[in-house]
């Protein structure tokens, strides 16, 4: 076989190219590969992946940004559901005895706080429950009635018959689709007279209560209940409440909520009733407010 007059043997040329490519690949893959310096999270080994997932969970425990946590976990390109990956890491840490120090326990709790509300589960479920939060109550000054003098009788004659026209009842404002709300308060309290109740209040930008806002409470992964503010006007137009079942964790949300929905736990707490300490279920104040545009 020979090239037409070019003086080249095609067979030798092709054989040479094949040998050269083989040699080149052997050199670049085996002898002098590119130095590893631009690794992405999905290329991490098992131990490093675990460290990375722990860091994501601890970060989430601080900032409560679920989307950010999801995107960070996605960078690991897990073969299964990202939340199940977190559950598996928690399980692995429990199995391997990484539960010795307080820091280890907090890591397990942070991991669990991340995966359980998303429906994942593992062998670390409920092993280290988050303790009920301390009850910090900021006393709210009650409005004091200021004595005022009765108004002096007017000298203006009053017409004998005056038509009293009641102001027209205006439709109650309900938040339009697209309104943006944030959580302004999530606070627990322990009151023997209010046993395991979530007290929800929804305010507009100016701090006025908004009635008719649908509040949704989720628990156990799939259970939900919806109720509306303003149905107990004696408690304020902004008010709605929900009775919790002890031991469950609930997520409270409203339409247009742009911050992370608060999660509350119906954990037991001790309070004083008629001079005796009694165990009741923790209650919560959860306030939402329209965000200033």
């Amino acid at each position: 076989m020979r090239a037409g007059g070019g003086g080249l043997s095609w067979f030798a040329l092709i054989l040479g190219v094949a040998i050269g490519i083989g040699a080149g690949l052997f050199y670049t893959w085996e002898i002098d590969p590119i130095i590893e310096h631009n690794t992405a999270p999905w290329q991490l080994g098992k131990a490093a992946r675990e460290d990375y997932v722990v860091a994501v969970a601890l970060s989430y425990a601080h900032n409560r940004d679920l989307t950010l946590a999801f995107n960070r976990l996605l960078a690991l390109k897990p073969e299964q559901n990202v939340w199940q990956l977190v559950a598996d890491v928690a399980c692995e840490r429990v199995k391997t005895g990484k539960t010795v120090s307080n820091s280890d326990i907090r890591v397990i709790r942070a991991l669990e706080q991340l995966y359980r509300p998303q429906g994942a589960s593992g062998c670390a479920d409920g092993l280290y429950p988050t303790p009920a939060p301390l009850v910090f109550v900021t006393p709210i000054p009650s409005p004091t009635a200021t004595p005022t003098l009765p108004p002096p009788p007017t000298k203006t004659p009053t017409p004998s018959s005056v038509a009293i026209v009641s102001p027209p009842v205006l439709p109650t404002p309900t938040p339009a689709v697209g309104e943006r709300f944030i959580v302004t308060r999530t606070q627990s309290f322990c009151d023997p007279n209010v046993d395991g109740v979530i007290e929800v209040r929804v305010y507009d930008e100016a701090g006025e209560g908004i009635p008719g806002v649908p509040v949704t409470v989720l628990w156990s992964g799939s259970e939900t209940e919806r109720f509306y503010t303003g149905l107990q006007p004696e408690r304020g137009l902004e008010y709605a409440d929900f009775q919790m079942t002890p031991g469950r964790t609930y997520t409270v949300t409203i339409p247009g909520l742009v911050s992370a929905p608060p999660q509350v736990e119906a954990a037991p707490c001790r309070a004083e009733l008629d001079g005796e300490m009694v165990t009741v279920t923790t209650s919560y104040w959860v306030n939402f407010q329209q965000r200033a545009r």
């Binding site: 030798a12 040329l13 092709i14 054989l15 040479g16 190219v17 094949a18 040998i19 050269g20 490519i21 083989g22 040699a23 080149g24 690949l25 052997f26 050199y27 670049t28 893959w29 590969p33 590119i34 590893e36 690794t39 290329q43 991490l44 080994g45 098992k46 131990a47 490093a48 460290d51 990375y52």
Partner: peptide
């Protein structure tokens, strides 16, 4: 041929299909 092949092989091995590590440390 070998010369051409080596150039092509090195280009493929370092640029197009470099070694991908999957068990890396942090």
């Amino acid at each position: 041929g070998v010369l051409i092949g080596v150039v092509v092989g090195v280009f493929l091995g370092w640029e197009q299909y470099p070694v991908e590590y999957t068990n890396s440390p942090l």
